[in-house]
Every structure is written in C-alpha cells, then in structure tokens.
C-alpha cells in the first residue's frame, strides 16, 4: 500500500477537505487545517493503518506539518 496515498486518504477523512494533498508541502497546522483534535485522530488512524507507534512526545509539530514530512516520519517508524 502506498504510504502517501494512505496518509492523504486519512487526512481527507478527518478534515473533510477534498483538495488536501494537492500541495504535499502545505503547512497543515499554519492555516488551521489540522487542530489538536484532528491531529490526534490522524495519529490514531495512522497507527492502525501502518501498524506503527507514535507516542505524543515524539509528535513534534515541525516534523509532521506537511504531507511529505508525514510520509517520511511514517517510513522511519515502519523501519524501526
């Protein structure tokens, strides 16, 4: 399963925005696309989908603020 497509699907689900992912470098926190609640939902969904563990402590907003960065982080956590 393509990680990027999976992440975009999750983001679409929780934000209800169809055009999300059209710019994979868009800062998702800056414009309030993701708030804290949506962030937790996305994290929980990613944990289930990719079978990874993301402790809240490791969730540094600057490291998870774009689709591309999320793909990188999930990749790292899958390898670990």
């Amino acid at each position: 399963m393509d990680v990027k497509a999976g992440i975009i699907a999750i983001l679409k689900d929780f934000t209800g925005l169809d055009d999300i992912g059209s710019d994979p470098d868009e800062n998702l926190f800056a414009d309030g696309v993701l708030d804290s609640m949506a962030t937790v939902e996305v994290l929980v969904a990613m944990q289930d989908k990719f079978d990874i563990q993301v402790p809240v402590s490791e969730f540094d907003r600057n490291q998870w603020n774009t689709v591309n960065k999320m793909v990188d982080r999930v990749g790292e956590l899958e390898e670990a």
Binding site: S36, T39, V40, E41, L43, V44, V56, F59
Partner: peptide, 15 residues
C-alpha cells in the same frame, strides 16, 4: 496544556 493535557486526554479517550 495542549501537549500534556488536551492531546493526551484525546488520545486516551479515543483509544
């Protein structure tokens, strides 16, 4: 408060 109370509480309630 966001990181150590709100998000953790959300995480807990969701799980």
């Amino acid at each position: 408060f966001r990181d150590f109370i709100y998000m953790r509480l959300m995480f807990f309630m969701m799980k």
